[in-house]
Nucleic acid binder design. Sequence first.
DNA 1: CGACACATGTAACACGTTACATGATTTG
DNA 2: CAAATCATGTAACGTGTTACATGTGTCG
Lengths: 187, 187
Amino acid sequence: MSIRNSLLALLERGPMHGYQLRVAFEESVGGTWSLNIGQVYTTLARLERDELVAPLPESEGQRPYEITDRGRAELARWFATPIERSDRPRDELAIKLALAMTTPGVDLTAVVQTQRVAGIRALQEYTRLKAHGSGDPDDLSWLLVLEAMIFQCEAEIRWLDFCESTILRKRTARPVTRVDVHEETGA
Amino acid sequence: MSIRNSLLALLERGPMHGYQLRVAFEESVGGTWSLNIGQVYTTLARLERDELVAPLPESEGQRPYEITDRGRAELARWFATPIERSDRPRDELAIKLALAMTTPGVDLTAVVQTQRVAGIRALQEYTRLKAHGSGDPDDLSWLLVLEAMIFQCEAEIRWLDFCESTILRKRTARPVTRVDVHEETGA
DNA sequence: CGACACATGTAACACGTTACATGATTTG
DNA sequence: CAAATCATGTAACGTGTTACATGTGTCG
């Protein structure tokens, strides 16, 4: 859904053809995510089918599109509606950790540590990028996207720390002793 | 990819059939994400094709599967490999904000505020869930998943605050004055 | 001329969702 | 008996990826 709406937003700046849309998108997110050119054309085809964009007369082998009024309405709806938690893709890392807890033969702390190292590494890379960033004041959107990645990364590392301490606490909390057995049978 | 690996992890506990896998998955993530039953069967079919699981003799209309050695190896690989930033889906919210900045006629602060309200609401809901959570010590994985959502949600709100202050700073930083005009033409 | 950027597309496939179709078993 | 739960699947569609095919223009 995000690509569809992104293309609409870019066309709101003015008519563009597929190749330009791809370049404009990647520029907008500061190269953080690339956009497959094939997807641009298939998405444009669907947008045209839904009458959210309309093709302009082609010239020199280029097929520019313009946004329609319906497209503009759809775009306004996108910006006016918050992205809910339920809209988001499943969190693969959370799923992985949750399943690791009940899968036999898995070294939980190793999984957490491996992920933690990757997180720290990513955070360093982001910090490096921010340091010798373009400096271009025009790249405000690039800064925001980068900062989003940093906030997420930090939150993930803190969560992994939480996981580790929770796991350790659980492990030390119930050493099986004779007393425990008595309590359990008594309950 | 996460469902594929999740099914392998669940089958590592022992043979199960499709319906059971779905229930077990949703239980593992504390009902945070639901799993479409149709997808379970199509994913099982692909896993069987790739020889990561094998069907057991069916009984009473049930088609249980067991994990194979290749499946076990694949699962071990999953747990040993960190999920990299590049593996993650594009962040729709970051994209939306980035595009909102360069789309004409968009009230940026309104977009940020709408999203912020939704974030606060979600956070309250999570806190409520945590409060009268199952209390079940067996639900450790449920606690971890919930906490992941809370960490993410908080990070998002902090990021939105960052966005707003950055946007405001930009807006007040360059009031177009006669002096500015001179500087620009001079540059 | 050859490499590279520009430009448009198609095919095949994985993953994900909703909806539909079917039947057995259990339980009020 | 009727409704709910258990259980298995298919179809259609959207989204996303990789790879392939094709052609123009430009520049060293």
